[in-house]
Structures are given as C-alpha cells and as structure tokens.
C-alpha cells in the first residue's frame, strides 16, 4: 500500500501526471472501497488497495469532467488494463494519454506508461472465466430456450431503468445512448416488461465483442440482475466463433464488424 502511495506522491510532485485515480475507503462500517481522485501529493495517504478494491476505475477515463483535469495515473486491476486496451482499439485513448499503475493482490505496483507495455502485461494474465464463473454459466446455458426466457423475464421484471449498469460500464461511453433517441423512440421509456427486455438485450448486444468482464454493471445494479451472465455468454461465443478476446490489444479488429474468410461461422452453416 505504501509503495502505491509513494508512487502517487512521486508522480504528482514531479507533475508527470495531474491526478491519480485510485481507491479510497468508503464511509461507514465495512464500507467497500470507492474511487478517489488525488490531485496533490499530500492527499496520497487516502489511497488504499485491498480485496475490496474491485471497481474498474477505467470508467472515469471516459467521463469528460475527469478528462479535463489533465493526464491521470490510474490504479489498474487486470480488468481496467484490458479496458484501456479496448478503449484504445476503439480510438478513445491514445498512447501516453495516461499512466497505468498495475496492482496485484500482493500490493506490487508496476507502472505501465505505454499501450505496448500494457499489452505485454495483459498477455501474461489469465483472462479466462474463473472456475466459479464457468460453472454458473454452464448451468445457465443448460436451460432450454423457454426456461431461459422465463428466467430473464423474472430478472428483468425488477429492472428500474436506472441505467446504473450503463453508468458503471467503462465501454458505455456514447455521448447519446440509443435509449435517449426519440426520433424514433427505439426503446420505450417506462420500465415495463417489453421496454426492460429491449433495453437489456440492447445493452448486452452493444457490448458483444467489447465487454472485458469487469463485472461492474452487475455490481452497480441496485436490484441484483445477473447481467454478467449475458456478457459472459456473449464473450464466450465471440471467443469460440471468431477467436477474439476483447481488451488484449490496442489495435484490434472488432469481432462484430469485421469479416475474416477463416471465421468458423458454425452458426450459419
């Protein structure tokens, strides 16, 4: 933890960056970690890093109000590193736009200044679904289509259309989301069955081949809808059918918009 704080102090003091985006302690007992924006070396002691630090801080890279504060160093979990690469592949961040401070469970800090070093770092990580995730996904996939429809109908019935999932997702960065289009109104505004289904299907599809499985959408959801099931299903399909994993390279062909003659395409034949 101290290594991290020292690094932050050094970066701010030397004006290498204008801000360190990291984790701080939330208020209240057993509070989860929350994002902090450290802009002076003296504030660096509020930085923490422990098992409660799960949020994908890369989401802030896309917020205009954060962006205008200048170059940031970002305390980055593996998901955040993959997000940075995915954002680069989508032309949203450029090399040297930011400095990633990769942290691991031991509190080890690795500064990664270029997209290339991030790529190398990510390549060494295990980006497969965890054993627990796999088991849960298999259970879900084993449902027949009718059971799956019922399952989602019950889950989505709770959706409030609060769009917290969208706000938490680092890859939902459009300045005007489809739900906000009213000429025509693609997605009905009220939180009824049809509108909720359309919204959630659309959100998931817009992340197909892009989602890095950070899990923040599901964590943000106030009514506990297991959105990760949709995301993980899609990302395993994209991997199986197009041999593509998002967030691994700063320049990548987007799985959903590119055609390769050797794509297996087993779903068409």
């Amino acid at each position: 933890m101290e290594t991290l704080r020292n690094k932050a102090r050094e970066l701010l003091a030397s004006k290498t960056v204008q801000m360190v985006i990291g984790y701080g302690r939330g208020s209240g007992e057993a509070a989860p970690a929350r994002a902090v924006f450290i802009r002076a070396a003296a504030e660096a002691e509020s930085l923490i890093f422990d098992a409660s630090c799960q949020q994908n801080l890369a989401v802030y890279l896309m917020k205009p109000e954060v962006r205008q504060l200048g170059k940031a160093a970002l305390v980055a979990t593996p998901s955040a590193l993959r997000t940075i690469l995915q954002l680069a592949a989508e032309n949203q961040v450029k090399d040297h736009d930011l400095l990633a401070l990769a942290v691991d469970a031991q509190g080890e800090v690795t500064p990664l200044a270029t997209l290339q070093t991030i790529e190398a770092h990510v390549a060494a990580l295990d980006c497969n679904l965890s054993a627990g995730e796999k088991t849960e996904l298999q259970k879900y996939v084993a449902l027949d289509p009718e059971q799956r429809r019922q399952f989602w109908q019950e889950e989505f019935a709770r959706c409030l259309k609060c769009y917290a999932c969208r706000g938490a997702c680092p890859l939902c960065y459009c300045s005007r989301c489809t739900v906000e289009c009213n000429q025509p109104q693609w997605i009905p505004v009220p939180a009824h069955d049809l509108g909720n289904l359309e919204w959630n299907v659309m959100r998931a599809m817009h992340l197909a081949g892009r989602c890095v499985n950070c899990g923040d959408c599901s964590r943000a959801c106030p009514v506990g809808i297991p959105l990760y099931l949709l995301n993980q299903r899609l990302l395993s399909e994209v991997l199986a059918n197009f041999n593509f994993r998002s967030g691994m390279a700063a320049k990548a062909d987007n799985a959903m918009s590119t055609f390769k003659p050797d794509d297996p395409e087993d779903f068409i034949r």
Binding site: Y173, D253, S257
Partner: peptide, 15 residues
C-alpha cells in the same frame, strides 16, 4: 458543443 453524436469509435469503419 456536441458537434455530432458520433463518439469516434470507428467500429463502423471496420464494418
């Protein structure tokens, strides 16, 4: 200040 709702992801370009 929007100029366009396009966010410049250029995924369309690849398609």
């Amino acid at each position: 200040p929007l100029y366009s709702t396009c966010v410049g992801c250029f995924l369309c370009q690849t398609s």
